[in-house]
Each structure stands twice: as C-alpha cells, then as structure tokens.
Nucleic acid binder design. Structure first.
Lengths: 189, 189
DNA sequence: CGCATTAGCTAATGTCATTAGCTTTAGCGG
DNA sequence: CCGCTAAAGCTAATGACATTAGCTAATGCG
C-alpha cells in the first residue's frame, strides 16, 4: 500500500480541474479517486464526502474569480475599471466553464469561510462603484445590475444559449458599454 | 393491477410540479412514480427515461415562460413592452423556481421540437425590438443584452445570491429602467 | 367475444455515495 | 534503533437511483 500523498487541497483542485475538462458530466468521487489511483472511500480521509468536495471547489472558484477580477481593476477607475472587470470576469468564466456555475451559488448559512470569500468579491465591486459616488441602496442596486448583466451573459454563453451566428465578443463589448453608460447616470434619473 | 392512467404529458407535468415544489432536491424518477402510486419502471412506458423527462419539462417550461412573456407584451410597444416583459419574466421565474433553470439550457442539436419552442421565445423579443428599428447584428446584440440582464438578475435572485438586505423589487425596477434607457440609444452610440 | 396492444409489475444489473472496520504506513519520543 | 500512535488507504457492505428484460393483466377494437 504505497501512499498516494493526498490532501484536502489536492483533492479539491483535482475536482475543479476535472470539472473544467468536461463540464457536461457531473462531477463524481469515483473519477476523482481514479485520477489519483486511489479507491473512492479513501477520499473521505481528506474531504467531507461529496458536499465537502463541492464546498471546497466553490470556495476555490469564488476566490480565483474574485482575485482575477480584482487584479484587472488595479490602477483603473470608473468606466475603465468596469470594462476591465467585465472582460476579466468573462475570460475567467470561459477558462473555467465547469467551475463558473459554482461561483454564483450561495454559501450555506453559517459557513463563515465561504461567506467571507463571497463577500470579498462583492467588496471589489463596491470599491469601484465608490468612484461613482453612489450611496446606500443606490450602490446596492448598481452592484446588482452589474453582476446580473455579467452573469447573465456569461451564463447564457457557456450554456450555449446564444444560437445566432453573431460574434459574441462584439455583443459582450456592446453590453459592457451599456453598463458603463448606465452607471454614469445611475445616481440621477 | 388497476391502471393509473398515466401519459407522457401527465408524467412531465408532475415532474415539473415536483421540481417547483422543492427546487433544491434533484428530480428523480422514484419520486415521480411514487406520486402516481406506481413503480418506477412503469414510467418508461410513457417517457424515455430521465433524459426524456428532462427534455419534456424543458419544452414545457420554455413554452410556458415564452407565452407568459408574449402575453405581457400584447398591446404595448417599446419601453412599455420591455418593462411588461421584464416583469412577466421575473414573475414566472419566481413562481417556477424549479423549472426556471431549465429554460436557459440549449436544446440538443437536431431536436426540432425543442429548437422551435426556444426560437419562438426569441421571436417575441425580436418583434418588440422591431419597435426600435434595430437591424441585423444590432438587433442581435440588443436581444442578448436584454436576455442577459433579465436572466442574470433572476438567476442570482433565485439562487439566493443577493444577500444584502435591500429590496429586490426596487433593484429590479431600477435595472429594467436602465435596460429601457439603453435600448433607446442602442442604434446610435 | 377474441385478440392484439399496451400499461404496469417484478427481478436483475450497474453506478455512485457513504459507512464501518481492518491494515499498513509514517513519524515521533524514548 | 524500537515501539507506539495517528493517519492513510483498503475491502466489504448498504442504500439510493436509473435502466433493461421479460411477465401478466387490462383495454379496446374488430
């Protein structure tokens, strides 16, 4: 019985990777175990079953997307920042088609670690919106608008729901321009 | 062996109903069968296994959402129509939280029936956008923007991803206003 | 009324997640 | 070096589902 040298992190990363490689097939423990040359029950020494694996991937994915988006906004503000973030968001999603859907699922109530990661992502958006001097509910509405629009496009695109033979880059660029314009006058109107 | 009087339609409707009642638990054939007081394999006489059931629910859901949205736009145009459609879209989704996610999944390639239903929905949006005199790629971009924004908000809302304690109605109304404004100047700019 | 069709059933198989409990490895203090 | 404990991995067993094969009984049409 040579040891395989697993760890929670390794299992979760492998799960995430397998998910991205074939987003169609549902992730299962047998596949993860097999990819390590290990029997399925062995994984339970490292993760808390399927729910634990999913939670781990969710946290990993949210953190990764969050930092990609945050980085894209460094040194930019307002329209520039919004555009950069939108591009980074979509790029990350296209590169991680399996993980992406997990980034929008809510944390389990009371799961402080996952709540923290989710919140960190929101904070990035809030910081950028600060450049528009939006306050209170207006800022929340604007954040929701921003997230909704990005998520909607990316979700529909990755699900293959945009059937028309028209360039997606172009459509997305146009959508982002509309977001920027909308945010310009968000407080007024 | 008294007959239960099943039919493809009945099975599919029951599946859809169960899905809406507890969107969290994945749909399974045992539950559907049990709800009819019938053994699981009996369902195969009416539907083509799990994939067939899912396809049936998908078609049902797309048709239902499509007609709700279409009806809402009757007798309205431009901003009025857009607003009415957006409200109808969200209302339908909140009333059918289990079925909603299926409405955005792409039909299997070659499945003419499902493709037709999906297309019918798009056509409704195109008709309304005709009021803005958008042509070709511009119309496609605008449609994508519209769908993305609605879907994004509704998806995030039904997944419980909007955590902040700020009124969702208000945020959605504000989002819809931004869509209307964006469409006003879609061709120019 | 007889017969073909079809609905529903039981039995069997396969996949997957999960738990219990065993065995061996690894690493640490003497 | 040696033994001991903790942890890693294993096998075996169970239970939920989906699916298929093949039987039996109800239905409905001539």
């Amino acid at each position: 019985m040579p040891r395989a040298g697993l760890s929670a992190g390794a299992v979760i990363e492998r799960g995430a990777q397998l998910l991205d490689e074939s987003p169609a097939d549902a992730l299962n423990l047998s596949t993860v175990a097999e990819s390590f040359g290990v029997r399925t029950p062995s994984l339970y020494k490292h993760i808390d079953g399927m729910p634990g694996l999913q939670r781990g991937i969710r946290i990993l994915a949210k953190a990764s997307l969050g930092s990609a988006v945050a980085q894209s906004a460094v040194g930019r503000s307002r329209g520039d920042a919004i555009t950069a973030m939108a591009m980074a968001y979509r790029r990350w999603a296209l590169q991680h088609p399996g993980q992406y859907p997990l980034t929008t699922s809510a944390p389990l109530p009371g799961d402080t670690e996952e709540i923290e990661v989710s919140t960190a992502f929101l904070d990035v958006i809030f910081s950028v919106l600060a450049g528009y001097e939006l306050e209170g509910d207006n800022a929340v509405d604007a954040t929701r608008f921003f997230r909704s629009t990005l998520h909607g496009f990316v979700a529909l695109e990755t699900e293959g729901s945009f059937a028309m033979p028209v360039d997606l880059e172009r459509s997305y660029a146009r959508l982002v321009r509309s977001i920027v314009t909308a945010l310009e006058s968000w407080g007024r109107e």
